[in-house]
Amino acid sequence: MDTLVGILNYLVFFAITAGIYAVLCLGLNIQFGYTGLFNIGIAGFYAVGAYTSALLSGPPPGPLDWRTVGGFQLPWVVGLLGAIIASGIIAFFIGLLTLRLKEDYLAIATIGIAEVIRLILKNEGWLSNTVWGIKHIPSPLHQPIEAGVSSFLKGHPQLSPWLIHFISNAYNWFYLALVLVILGLLYWVSERSIRSPWGRVLRTIREDEAIAAVSGKNVFSFKLQSFVLGAMVMGMAGSLYAHYAKFIDASSFEPLYGTFLIWVMLIAGGSGNSKGAILGAFLIWGIWAGTDFLTGYLALSATRVASLRVIAIAILLELVLLLRPQGLLGEEKAVSKMMGK
């Protein structure tokens, strides 16, 4: 029984992380799946969201910290809003700069801004505390829930150990619910908007920019809206991550975790399909986390196994592109049909 609870607790932890990735995928789906915008600096927007939220809602710098700013201890919701706005602002400027030009420029600019953000986080101690990161980021409603749990456990001392084990994990269940509610909300908004006239214009732009332009749409403005919205969703994911992990530093936002995996997830699940984006996130994160266990079985060093996993994921991506370019789910028929009109 106890092992079962252990597995269950792990699954909750797994689902929270996968859920946060799913939010990132929905953000990328708005940019790439709907409008065809090529963002390879997802990690940058994700990091900006995480740090903004941590600085707004987190604790002031401790005595040993380099950091001198932030720590306003504002409510979590303010941190979340700040994250969304900050990522949106950066995306707005990047979009303004590149969305009128050929798609290569957007790719280069996004990879560039993500690198610059990473450099700033690594080097500007006053802001990010460099490699020591930002610690003790509060999780929303953490105190009341933990207090409730411990008083409940005190009141019921004769519970079996597995039940105690199960109940002590209550906060993670709460956080999972929070992530899933946000994910559900985003899914709903995303589905609604793509079926709206606005969404149809985005798809027309993706298929053939000239047609959209000829029919009198301001292509640039639509692209900018889509890019900024997608980046805002990525910033939201950053906030969700920061308040769950409680600790962030630049290493969480390296291109592998912050950008590459998300691309694999969206492509595998089905670009242009919100369900596919979510499915891809859970599936690929399942494969990724699942292969972590291999470390114990293979007679290889941890870094070698890590490389091996990236190699496997990269091969998976290429196979999907070659054999099933539309991804597992592909684009939904109902939406494609509307495109034709």
Partner: peptide, 26 residues
């Protein structure tokens, strides 16, 4: 299939090659 698919694929290739090197030499 188009230029964007190529871009996605080339990101995959770059992670692939880099990690092959990392696998062999660390």
């Amino acid at each position: 299939t188009g230029p964007i698919v190529l871009l996605v694929a080339s990101i995959g290739v770059s992670f692939f090659l880099r990690n092959i090197i990392q696998f062999i030499w660390g």
